[in-house]
Write a protein that binds this DNA or RNA. Structure first.
Length: 512
RNA sequence: GGCGGGGUAGCUCAGUGGCAGAGCAAGCGGCUCAUAAUCGCUGUGUCGCGGGUUCGAAUCCCGCCCCCGCUACCA
């Protein structure tokens, strides 16, 4: 556990890429979890950022006639603007080109280098090299034994590199997974990791001399750190490693590293081993979600399936965007995106479900009580609603702590369904016509409004904007951001006399 | 080749020994507070294929087919 702080991270993104809905999927899920823990009253540290070193960036910069730093400075804002638009409330944003990061990387490397076990050693990297690409290829990447890009023969090359002795850590890793059954999730990914580690681990190279855009090794600056000791280290840099020991002790280890399944091995094997080599605790949990597919294809730039989040946010709005990806795709599994399914979800769950529920309740409060939440006479008209709220709130909490995001949101939706059903059963519009049933009417509308209040609280982590608008329509004076579960989800906290206003529909139907 | 996951309604999926389920979509009825909304009812299935165990199998066993992931090796 993070000692005192719930610490959750996203991967750091590569600024050469154009953000697409696959990248945003990590970010939304992570933000949902982070916001939920804040709702529970926990201190939360949510980290994201960009991975700004490496040969590809150096090349792209050269092609653009810029220095690598100028280049990443120009690209990185494209990512932040997406996070801003998606209401991603990170607490810190790390760029691997920052000096705080360089210091942490050097410290980690030096610590491992000096750990007395010879865990970093000078070795020889051998591979098939394309002189035009200045890159090594593996055999299966080649086309007819030639470079897949230039079509020229590759050369067997050797290069002196430093290596990390990953092979020495297989047993310790296995003991770690054994002692922490949730260290790698979901289960299918844990199995994969176990089978890879049991199959034996190979040392990996951690430095290059063939390019310069990176962090030099402290004991041999002719070498530039290659990828993993740079990228993964961001998670401890931002926690205060090497700069703020007190803070580091409070924040580390991370509770959750949220990643895509493509970087599972690095996070679930390399990273814990690297930390062990420096006598730092491994992260509590690595959570590898699935991939989004579009038309049955894995999303990519090359087949034009790389949909930019704005294409969808412009049409559906940010809250529907966040809701859709969490609700429609079983979290942990691969799932297919389609405009049609998003449109269906939008109308069924948001416009007709939650949105319409809010409209009808607020409209009746308006016409029968001038918008003021009525006093609750002791008529018991709320029926089973309080019990259901209690049950849902408790299940929601358990599911969220278990990162079962899809069923968690589905559980909250049981309240939407039950509330719509409840209104038809109690028919407040009929009670309103009968002067002798004013008390019953008050009881029903109070209960309906109370459900809306609780929905706003429970849904604020997944759709903060819409929850906020609903909260405003309810007219509650305390800020939504100050609410904490479970107390805020207790029945009966909506104060009679609160002035509600119907306002605009939460999720207007979309013509298409 | 090995390991793992999966194949259930038109779609997305739940269901690990006891009459095949949910949501969405579709059809019919009710209601009129609400965003052409909502509520109720309704149909649909060789539960991948073939065997077996069992009083009883989507569920357990054996064999096979197909899809996905990880991994190995041949070459």
């Amino acid at each position: 556990m993070g000692r005192d702080v719930f610490y959750i991270t996203t991967p750091i993104y590569y600024p050469n890429d154009v953000p697409h809905i696959g990248h945003a999927y990590d970010a939304v899920a992570t933000d949902f979890i982070a916001r939920y823990h804040r709702l529970r009253g926990e201190e939360v540290f949510h980290l994201t950022g960009t991975d700004e070193h490496g040969l590809k960036l150096q090349r792209a910069a050269e092609a653009a006639g810029m220095s690598p730093k100028e280049w990443v400075d120009s690209m990185e804002p494209r990512w932040r603007e997406v996070w801003a638009r998606l209401d991603i409330a990170y607490d810190d944003y790390i760029r691997t080109t920052e000096s705080r990061h360089e210091a942490a990387v050097k410290k980690l490397l030096q610590t491992v280098h000096d750990n007395g076990r010879d865990d970093i050693y000078l070795g020889t990297y051998e591979g098939l090299y394309c002189v035009s690409c200045e890159l090594y290829y593996t055999e299966d990447e080649l086309v007819d034994g030639r470079c897949p890009i230039h079509g020229i023969p590759v050369e067997a090359m050797r290069e002196e590199n430093y290596f990390f002795r990953l092979s020495a850590y297989a047993d310790r890793l296995l003991r770690h997974y054994e002692a922490h059954p949730k260290a790698v999730q979901p289960e299918v990914r844990r199995n994969e990791v176990l089978s890879v580690v049991r199959g034996g681990l190979q040392d990996f190279s951690i430095s290059r001399t063939s390019f310069r855009w990176g962090i030099p090794l402290p004991w041999d600056p002719a070498h530039v750190n290659y990828v993993w000791f740079d990228a993964l280290t961001n998670y401890i840099t931002a926690a205060g490693y090497g700069s703020d020991p007190e803070r580091f002790a409070r924040v580390w280890p991370a509770n959750i590293h949220m990643i895509g399944k493509d970087i599972l091995r690095q996070h679930a094997i390399y990273w814990p081993a690297m930390l062990m080599a420096a006598d730092i605790e491994p992260p509590e949990q690595v959570w590898a979600h699935g991939f989004l597919t579009v038309g049955g294809q894995k999303m990519s730039k090359t087949n034009a399936t790389g949909i930019h989040p704005f294409e969808l946010v412009d049409h559906f709005g940010v809250d529907a965007y966040r809701y859709y990806f969490i609700r429609e795709i079983q979290f942990g599994q691969d799932g297919s995106f389609s405009f049609e399914s998003m449109n269906d979800r939008y109308h069924a769950d948001l416009a007709n479900g939650l949105g319409n529920l809010a409209s009808r309740v607020l409209a009746m409060l308006g016409s029968y009580y001038d918008g003021l939440v009525p006093e609750v006479p002791a008529t018991g008209m709320e029926g089973d609603l309080p019990a259901l709220v209690k049950d849902v709130t408790s299940r929601y909490d358990g599911l969220m702590l278990d990162v079962a995001l899809t069923p968690a949101v589905a559980a909250v939706w049981e309240l939407v369904g039950r509330a719509n059903q409840y209104l038809v059963e109690r028919a407040p519009w009929r009670l309103a016509k009968d002067p002798e049933r004013r008390d019953d009417l008050a009881g029903v509308l109070y209960a309906a409004a109370e459900i809306l209040r609780i929905l706003a609280v429970l849904l604020s982590p997944v759709m903060p904007g819409a929850a906020g608008r609903l909260w405003t329509q309810l007219g509650i004076s305390e800020p939504l951001a100050a609410q904490n579960v479970p107390e805020a989800a207790e029945w009966g906290r909506l104060a009679p006399g609160t002035r509600t206003t119907k306002g605009e529909p939460l999720f207007p139907r979309l013509d298409s």
